[in-house]
Write a protein that binds this DNA or RNA. Structure first.
Length: 426
DNA sequence: CCCCCCCC
């Protein structure tokens, strides 16, 4: 491994413009967090000097990067989120951890660094294993799996049931040992890799399935009667029963110093680590010729006479609210002023809002799916049945992308909401 | 659909 790149210990929280060449030294199975539904996966990355750092992937990034960061392979990594591990979790604070996300740039390097990797381990010979019986010492062995026994349930001496599974390891001298996997290691490490399982995984992870916009959503009507709007006080600060609702009120930016855009994949809108205009293979949608383009986003406050909520808008509704576009927002270097974009509304507008309930928090997050100016529907002959073509900042009859973005489930939800309204006569 | 963060 060359030395024109930084080393792991050169990178601290706040360091910018770094690139470190690393080998994936360990890759643990994804796990579900104890106190939240979040999935996480830890990796150990090693630089040319054998220093290591823990890298973590969360949620959807786990599957996105599963073929990107392979055990034993070498990568150039830049722009990972670098932070000190939470002192609450680690006895000694100050330890560094990297978070790998869509922002992180990862480039495969065709280099074989397995010797480096192996050199950092000290393997215990099979014949020396008896020395460590009944001690709590961590040791490493190297061998090949030649047999996987059926899993079995055992009782510990405290009466607890545990699932275990035995693997047979063989070394170069053809000595064998039995390695027992316990509990989650049975599920995670003992999987046979038959074709059918791989296919099952692909189906359950739906890498290649993208949602198709439903015709339903294009028939969604903007309500005009006051009773069709949700009062903010009824959703403020708690989980809501409904997932989608209409609010009539005003939006304004309260946190001026925020990033009003992110670099995205032109195919799936997910975050990209590439430069504007570059063509690249997207790890999320697997599109091989994705283009990196800016996408607007804004974090704002939504108020009506009864209260306020914080909400995010992305893409079209963000551009419409800010009266700007993603490219301008990207090139804007100063903290914006009312002259450079719209920061608050003078008059009430209509918002279609999605509530995202958070498993552990009593509060939910809100996202604005689209915004309608009431004047756009006021003169409409079909008042109360305004088609969504009127929504957003495009009036050429094109359905705005913010609405096309609704996936099938959301469309179903919309249909249910509308049906509910129909059934109750409101 | 998209952003943010997230775990021991």
């Amino acid at each position: 491994m060359g030395d024109k790149f930084q080393l792991i210990h050169d990178v601290s929280p706040g360091t910018t413009g770094w690139t470190v060449k690393v080998v994936v030294a360990e890759k643990f199975s994804p796990r579900v967090a104890q106190r939240s539904p979040t999935k996480y996966q830890n990796l150990t990355l090693m630089d040319s000097e054998g220093s290591t750092v823990q890298a973590t992937l969360y949620g959807q990034n786990i599957t996105a990067f599963q073929d990107e960061l392979l055990l034993g392979k070498t990568y150039l990594i830049s722009n990972a989120l670098v932070k000190e591990t939470n002192a609450e979790y680690k006895a000694k604070s100050g330890e560094i951890q990297w978070t790998i996300s869509g922002r992180t740039r990862i480039r495969r390097v065709e280099e074989n660094n397995s010797n480096l990797l192996i050199s950092t381990y000290s393997f215990t010979d099979f014949e020396d294993l008896p020395k460590y019986m009944d001690s709590n010492v961590d040791i490493s062995v190297i061998g090949m799996i030649i047999d996987i026994k059926p899993r079995r349930i055992i009782q510990t001496r405290f009466g607890k049931e545990c699932q275990v599974q035995d693997l047979v390891l063989v070394n170069k001298r053809f000595d064998t040992v039995l390695l027992t996997m316990w509990e989650t290691f049975v599920d995670n490490e003992c999987k046979g890799h038959t074709n059918s399982e791989i296919i099952d995984n692909m189906i359950s992870e739906k890498h290649y399935l993208t949602s198709t916009p439903s015709k339903l959503s294009s028939k969604l009507s903007v309500p005009t009667a006051e009773k069709d709007f949700t009062e903010i006080k009824n959703i403020q600060g708690l989980k809501t029963v409904k997932q989608f609702f209409w609010i009539k009120g005003k939006a304004s930016v309260k946190v001026l110093n925020q990033t009003y855009w992110y670099m995205s994949c032109n195919n799936c809108n997910k975050i990209s680590s590439e430069n504007y205009g570059d063509i690249y293979p997207c790890v999320f949608c697997k599109c091989t010729d994705a283009k990196a383009i800016p996408r607007a986003k804004v974090y704002m406050q939504l108020t009506d006479p009864t209260g306020y909520i914080n909400a995010t808008a992305i893409g079209n509704p963000a551009e419409y609210f800010l009266q700007s576009n993603a490219e301008i927002l990207m090139n804007q270097t100063l903290i914006p002023t009312a002259a450079s974009m719209r920061l608050s509304m003078d008059e009430d507008e209509i918002f279609y809002v999605k509530a995202i309930t958070q498993e552990l928090s009593p509060e939910c997050k809100f996202e604005i799916l689209f915004i309608v100016n009431p004047s756009q529907i006021a003169g409409d002959k079909n008042k109360g049945k305004a088609p969504v073509e009127h929504i957003g900042n495009r009036f050429d009859g094109e359905i705005p992308s913010s609405l096309l973005g609704l996936n099938f489930l959301e469309s179903l939800q919309l249909q249910e909401n509308n049906l509910a309204r129909f059934n109750t006569g409101i």
